[in-house]
Amino acid sequence: MLASALFYLLAAATVAATLLCITRTNPVHAVIYLVHAFFDLALIFYLLGAPLVAAWEMIIYAGAIMVLFLFIIMMLELAPGGKPLEVDRQRWIPVLLLSLVTLGCTVVLIIQDPSAAASGAAYHASPREFGTALFDRYALGVQVVSFQLLFAAVGAYYVGKGEPRRRGGPSS
């Protein structure tokens, strides 16, 4: 009872935070609101019986990824704020309509499924269970994802390296 009430509350908070996030002009503000949304999401995850995922949501998503966003934003000295929303009317009305239609269709699809309406007992995945599943059944996936992280690191290094500075000499 409490858990379901909490869920709805947190869901509302997440939606509000996300809404605020996407309508900010200042990217820093947007990132902060998003971090807030992630906090709420982490709690939701815990309520849905995924404590490890909740922890990682905080650590990786809010702690690393969003921080990286902030780093880049501040490094590039973007949008000192004060400028009006750089979305023109011609853009956001069709997008809004489209999104609403999409949402409507999705909602209808979701609702008409009777099996989704039932609710059984709560579920809670212990870390042990999680770890077993991850490294037992999905070991290959773990390896592949680590490769991918390596590639990403190399790629990011290369892209962000910049051009070598020319040393003197006649310009050709």
């Binding site: 858990a3 869920f7 939606v15 949402l103 099996s115 989704a116 709560a122």
Partner: peptide
Amino acid sequence: MIVPFAHVLLFAALL
């Protein structure tokens, strides 16, 4: 489950 699965999906769709 604490809430019907449909509600979770709706929430996800909204986001």
